[in-house]
Design a binder for these strands. Structure first.
Lengths: 339, 339
DNA sequence: CTGAAAGCGCTTACAG
DNA sequence: CTGAAAGCGCTTACAG
């Protein structure tokens, strides 16, 4: 049987003071009035040390109507972007006494439990990376209940929450234009698999097809492969494409990882990149810089979320609700050597 | 001003029932007695729908003395392993009404806030991946307070919590033995950088040095490079090593990623792997299967945490505290083509 | 300077 | 079948 956790009442008895005094000592807070004198303070702290007392988060949250916890929500699996944001958030949060919890959203698994974390006030605020499963109405409802939200989304209008614009569609389209502008007519596309579908997958696919069609190029279904989410599938698909009688001369990939695998496949077949096969990825992951030739890609230019993090804490610190604003974190075509 | 969140009292008034009835309807729980009849039920549910009522997590947790939240703690950055465990945990949790929060521990940032999440009963239980910043005494204290814990660790004894053994030291040592057994005498080591130090970094380094010394081979400081945590540094370091007058004939890397970069560097210099340079990584990430030649590595054989996840929920479901047990998830030398 | 007391929003034995 | 009431462990205006 685990012994009952000590409460402030236990500490108070042990130290011969009231629970109010215990709370004042522990919180250091005292609404303007003087703090308890050192002697009282010490008795309390000694009792805390002796019993191993720990604050009860639920009780404090209920009473104070805030949790001092913020969340980072993102579609799983994690990425260098979500990792970096988690780090920046945690550094900023530590200085203000906030804890950070990450909420990876598993595709396919039920999202009910994870949405409960937001709706039932487990947390005071959150940063939502792109493609989280919440619509504008749900976000507005959360904001109206006092949840501080910074949301990465290219379509939503701010409304009690802030929206970070990446303009991913334009950047993806620029990649297609670059390939066609360089004279490519047979452009292959490594698409997301169906089970990794979603808004962004659609944006990527539409950028590809719209780009081709806008230049009078028919979309050849043979050149579109749903392999962008699997390294081994991507490698095999590109090898297969390059061995065809009429191989593609350019490759756009929905993920940088698959693009890198494509470059490997090309290298292993003796196909020169970019001369015989131009390759452009999407996402701008660090690995793209490591391969030779370095990967041309589409994505955010810098691994830096300081503005978004700062904005979240502005919201949390504000005494009155802040209006929703738009922040720009625009995706760009990042031209390197591969295409 | 955000309107006050509706409470069960508001729902009760609106539906013309008591708060007790509201609670019974919402929880579906009723200690054996009959549930409220459909008519009452409907009135309550209508009021809930009209007001957008959401349960208050803090109040419920305080009253029920459980949170229905479990955590996954792991040293950042995330990895295929932490991603996979998050997924398995979430699937298992969803079926039982539990939410999952991830707690990435940022090296360098203060761990105080994150430890509070465990100690202040923010959660009912957690899986701790290797190298989390909690010692045996802290874990025992948490367990004694009723927190269900499954801890990956090679040294700790179970004590109110379960311990998952990986035996990483033996597996790392086996990698060194394999290289030396194959006749290699000049074995380079890509070590962790100092800032990525920790117990595992030490285990890896010791396996390397002890292995060499056990076979009468002096450790050449020139062959040890602290580059395993940076892809670009690893690539450059291996290129540099291979250009030396007396290049190494084998390479052990503290991370698979750096090992893969090493293979790239070798390929780019025309050095054959494994004939001119045998390469072994540590970690068994999926990427190791993608490179050619496939990476020999050290790690868990399968990306499968079902036993650990099941055990966590066994603990959570148990009416009385369970004794701590050891689970085996032993690391192995996984022999592929590179070394 | 300190304490008694109310109350945050739930759940659940218990009485009717 | 339903409701009044206690209480989970805190914080904080308020009284002394």
């Amino acid at each position: 049987m685990p012994p009952r956790r000590p409460t402030q009442r236990d500490i108070a008895e042990r130290a011969g003071v009231s629970t109010a005094t215990v709370s004042y000592v522990l919180s250091g807070r005292r609404g303007g009035a003087k703090p308890p004198p050192p002697e009282t303070r010490e008795r309390v702290l000694r009792a805390v040390a002796e019993t191993g007392y720990q604050l009860d988060h639920a009780a404090r949250s209920l009473r104070r109507q805030r949790t001092d916890v913020v969340a980072l929500m993102y579609p799983a699996p994690s990425s260098p972007w979500s990792d970096r944001l988690a780090e920046e958030l945690q550094v900023a949060a530590a200085g203000r006494g906030f804890a950070v919890v990450a909420l990876p959203v598993i595709t396919g698994a039920s999202t009910a439990a994870i949405l409960r974390v937001l709706k039932q006030r487990y947390i005071d605020g959150a940063v939502l990376l792109p493609d989280c499963p919440l619509d504008g109405a749900e976000l507005a409802a959360l904001a109206a209940q006092g949840c501080s939200l910074v949301v990465f989304d290219d379509d939503l209008e701010p409304g009690g929450f802030d929206v970070v614009r990446q303009d991913r569609a334009s950047a993806c389209r620029a990649a297609v234009e670059r390939l066609i502008g360089a004279g490519h007519r047979r452009v292959a596309f490594l698409a997301h698999a169906d089970e990794h579908g979603g808004a962004l997958a659609d944006v990527k696919m539409r950028s590809y097809t719209d780009g081709l069609v806008a230049h009078g190029i028919a979309v050849d279904p043979e050149l579109v492969r749903p392999v962008a989410d699997s390294r081994s599938d991507a490698y095999a698909a590109v090898r297969d494409l390059l061995r065809r009688p009429e191989p593609p001369t350019a490759l756009l990939s929905a993920t940088d990882r698959a693009a890198v695998d494509g470059i490997w496949a090309a290298r292993d077949l003796g196909v020169a990149v970019p001369d015989q096969l131009a390759v452009i990825g999407i996402g701008n992951i660090p690995e793209g810089l490591m391969i030779s030739p370095a990967l041309t890609t589409v994505g955010a230019a810098a691994l830096d979320f300081s503005r978004e993090v700062a904005r979240l804490f502005e919201r949390l610190d504000a005494s009155a609700p802040l209006p929703g604003v738009e922040l720009a974190a625009t995706w760009e075509l990042i031209t390197r050597a591969s295409g």
